[in-house]
């Protein structure tokens, strides 16, 4: 039995259920009301964030919004961002890898692209690109941020697809297919594409995990997908994220660790849960392919 595949399917299934049912789940307040003041038993006033209690299952954030509701409602946005990043990356990597497989010019570009980006950690490149004023003040900033996060890792993914195509090319039965007069399109459609498709599906899961990882890291250093600028006391303007996506919960990490540890713990729990779910799914899918291929040869 493929235990990882089942575990991965169950975990991603739970996430999917949260995304679809989010606002309608029990104990969820879809309006995300801010409880700015509360009274304790002795009649004294309390200010948020409130620790986990009967009223707030896993506590509240710094504005007094119930965290459970926020996480459930925010799942939709989180996975929407993730889907855009991963989808964009997969499509681009597919185009590049197939192009590189048939056209040597594109192969050269892919290799150079890869080599150039391998000289800076992804997070550095993203930060440098995001600091360009043209991106920073663009009306479509959210789109640009997602595009940058996608594109930075396209070369690496394209190389994985390209390697998979090359492995397929080396199979002995490919010679038979060519010898029996298979045209380029036929070869691609019935030989290369099926094997590539398997690779794309399992890579999709791996990439989702990686992208989530990166979004969490970006959340810690204060880079968000949807942000608006708000004035500060010193007349400067600081980006403030208005969304409910999970990485945003990490924005006050330094302060929260000391005073409201449940906020980062909740965020990290859900983020880690989804990353592990995606990895298990990817691993299970790879195992399933290996088993299937072995059967095919018999």
């Amino acid at each position: 039995m493929n235990r990882n595949l089942w575990l991965g399917l169950i975990m991603t299934g739970i996430l999917l259920a949260i995304v679809i049912l989010g606002p309608y789940l029990p104990f969820v307040d879809p309006s995300l009301e801010q409880n700015l003041l509360d009274k304790d038993d002795g009649g004294g006033l309390l200010v948020p964030p409130y620790a986990p209690s009967d009223e707030f299952l896993i506590g509240t954030d710094r504005k007094g919004v119930d965290l459970w509701s926020k996480v459930m409602v925010g799942a939709r946005e989180t996975f929407y961002i993730l889907a855009v990043i991963v989808g964009f990356r997969l499509v681009l990597a597919l185009l590049v890898s197939v192009g590189a497989f048939y056209i040597s010019g594109i192969r050269l570009i892919m290799n150079i692209w890869n080599a150039v980006f391998s000289f800076m950690p992804t997070i550095f490149i993203i930060l440098i690109l995001l600091a360009i004023p043209g991106v920073m003040f663009s009306d479509y900033r959210a789109f640009w941020v997602m595009a940058i996060i996608s594109v930075v890792e396209v070369g690496r993914l394209a190389l994985i697809f390209y390697d998979s195509l090359q492995t397929q090319k080396r199979q002995t039965y490919m010679e038979a297919a060519i010898a029996s007069g298979g045209r380029r399109w036929t070869l691609f459609k019935s030989y290369y594409w099926p094997s590539l498709k398997r690779e794309v599906v399992s890579s999709g899961a791996t990439e989702s995990g990686r992208a989530m990882f990166l979004l969490a890291q970006l959340g810690v250093i204060g880079i968000y997908i949807n942000q608006e600028f708000f004035s500060q006391l010193d007349r400067s303007y600081r980006s403030v994220d208005l969304s409910n996506s999970w990485p945003v919960l990490l924005s006050n990490l330094r302060r929260d660790v000391n005073s409201a540890e449940w906020i980062p713990l909740v965020a990290l729990f859900f983020i880690t849960f989804s990353i592990i779910g995606f990895y298990l799914l990817a691993d299970g899918l790879k195992k399933r392919q290996a088993i299937k291929l072995r059967r095919d040869f018999q």
Binding site: I123, L127, G222, R235
Partner: peptide, 27 residues
């Protein structure tokens, strides 16, 4: 990068983030 920025360990990655700071703050 993450470790230095988060723990305020003032090394090269911390200061590089500092010089890139315009991505989140401006006048």
């Amino acid at each position: 990068f993450i470790v230095e920025v988060f723990t305020e360990y003032r090394g090269a990655a911390f200061y590089m983030y500092d010089t890139l700071g315009s991505a989140t703050t401006f006048y």
